[in-house]
Design a protein around this nucleic acid. Structure first.
Lengths: 346, 346
DNA sequence: GTGAAAGCGCTAACAC
DNA sequence: GTGTTAGCGCTTTCAC
């Protein structure tokens, strides 16, 4: 079957191509009976509007770009993170007949901005979803802005008012986790911070502080140790904390990898979890369930966030009334076995 | 800067648009001095050829589609698999100014074929990379063929001569692994088969048989147990095998998840690895390194395979002399701690 | 409600 | 080597 065009459909339905176009694009001003006739012709011919022709004429494509930090640089532990983003965006695309273009980029390299600009100017996607930590980087955001491509940022550090953002209640949920630990009877709750490059991770520290305050516990700098998001750094931090004369009875790490590191340190030092030490993380990576005891953590609704981001882009594409504000998608606390009532304390 | 077109460049360089087109597309028949002038004009105006216009006129886009089994159906353990495919394809795309479209599809659902056809007919990608297990499914392959889109299949079951395929030496490497186990002194080497839906997994059994033969060991049906690729099925199979009067001293599972299941069964039954039992898997998933003792396994060079697939598509796009044959990318045996000389045997 | 005509920005075929 | 002329298949504008 040689591919049919809008002309073939028009001829078969006995209307003009403009009417076919109206039907295809669900525009108003078509009589129901006409619409039916056109739809029948479309089905009969197996007509598919050509994407390139459409984009060329309308100056907007049916493509959404997903831009995220290139995992090549990371040795792939972020696979779950990326797949969740993709799945969320795809869910939204699928129901709207859009396709998803992926564009990981390594912000550490020269030329990223140029490549990104090239993508936007050549491909002209209907919009871009920019994931953290790229969503915090001014030069990336500016480059996108310069091309005029609609953009939604996921979990940006500061909620810069000029762009539409999708974020979680990171800080609040971390406060909640801290309160939960306090409610279990813990008095010395430590926190391990992450790589300051990821702004989202920084906000988690503030949440921890909020939680202490809400629970009537004093904040102490001694209970905050710096990590760099890696398992190794968590292990080092755990050793440092557990080696003290008065070790904490609970450790809340800014991400799961570091929490797992803490568990390793505890295991090596013969500290029982959760009997002697409660451990909590953030992210709910796959490893969190596989580790023993299973890690209490917080799940970022990444998939829902990406879906929301894509939906916003699609709406903007249809209505075009500007993308502003911040949409909050709530994070979820997953209580598992690594937390419990601590040992009796002085 | 209002976006400039090929006309602007032509005017500035004092040539015709066709000459600009030649320069942009690296076509021959342009004098070096002319080319330089045009390139200067392009740089000066920041000209970018419009992707849609190009695709429309040339009837081929600068997009490559990557089609794989939808992980939604799988609860995401396949994240690493997918990311590796994507990374490989992206490596090839990047150096050729192509973009990558991802299209996971759930072959269990009705309407996949229709959606895939729609993708191909509307978007007209320059080519499709079809990953296993989809690459084995006749109705999927046929649907792609019907649209005339160039397609490369990754790890298809049977090497159907009409398409270009990229595969690994699955069977050979499984024979090698079996020989390695035999060389360690194992006489009773068991094999756990996987989901027969994945043809690649079936070939692994043949490799195991080859290996036995090469090592002068007899094949016994009793030493082959069926699994379904899941950890749970590996655990069940392991229990069954280890519960025998003469249990095997080595178990080779057709994938890592099942191998991990075997390790769990061994741990529960108090069987020491590798002192009493050697365990080997296939895939080199992340868990393989995290498990204790670390799993001996086989790594499929997925990334290299996807890169090769994309490169073939790009070449076909340029030269167009037909895609045939099979490219083999060699798999790698990773010997870790779960295998060793077995116990002395009768 | 519907249609005719004029492009969108580029490549292809062929002329020179 | 280089330019001219037609489209590619659609949307847009505006007329009816």
């Amino acid at each position: 079957m040689p591919k049919s065009t809008i002309f073939d459909v028009a001829k078969l339905a006995g209307v003009s191509i403009k009417t076919v176009s109206r039907v295809v694009n669900r525009e108003p001003n078509v009589r129901a009976s006409t619409r039916e006739r056109v739809e029948k012709a479309i089905a009969e011919l197996g007509y598919r509007p050509d994407h390139s022709a459409r984009s060329l004429a309308s100056r907007r494509s049916h493509l959404i770009g997903l831009v995220y930090d290139d995992p090549a640089a990371y040795e792939l532990p972020s696979a779950g993170y990326i797949i969740n983003l993709q799945q969320g965006a795809l869910e939204a695309c699928r129901s709207n007949r859009f396709e998803l273009l992926i564009h990981p980029c390594d912000y550490r390299k020269k030329g990223v901005v140029a490549r990104l600009t090239a993508l936007l100017e050549e491909t002209r996607p209907a919009g871009i979803i920019l994931a953290a930590p790229l969503s915090n980087m001014a030069r990336i955001v500016r480059a996108i802005e310069a091309t005029g491509t609609p953009c939604v940022r996921i979990s940006p550090g500061k909620e810069n008012g000029n762009y539409y953002c999708v974020a979680t209640n990171d800080r609040e949920v971390c406060a909640e986790m801290t309160c939960y630990l306090a409610s279990l009877g813990h008095k010395r709750i430590a926190f391990i911070t992450g790589d300051p490059e990821h702004k989202a991770v920084t906000r988690r520290l503030s949440g921890y502080q909020d939680g202490l305050q809400q629970s009537g516990l004093a904040f102490s700098e001694r209970l905050v140790v710096a990590g760099d998001n890696s398992i190794g750094s968590g292990e080092a931090a755990g050793e440092k904390l557990l080696g003290r004369k008065h070790p904490p009875t609970a450790i809340f790490a800014a991400n799961d990898d570091m929490a797992v590191g803490v568990m390793r340190a505890a295991s090596r030092l013969g500290v029982q979890i959760p009997a002697q030490l409660s451990v909590a993380g953030f992210d709910d990576i796959e490893l969190a369930r596989q580790v023993y005891p299973a890690l209490t953590t917080i799940r970022q609704p990444l998939r829902a966030m990406a879906r929301q981001a894509a939906l916003a882009l699609l709406e903007e594409n249809r209505e075009g009334n500007g993308l502003r504000g911040t949409e909050i998608v709530e994070a979820l606390i997953k209580i598992r076995e690594s937390t419990g009532p601590g040992p009796d304390q002085d």
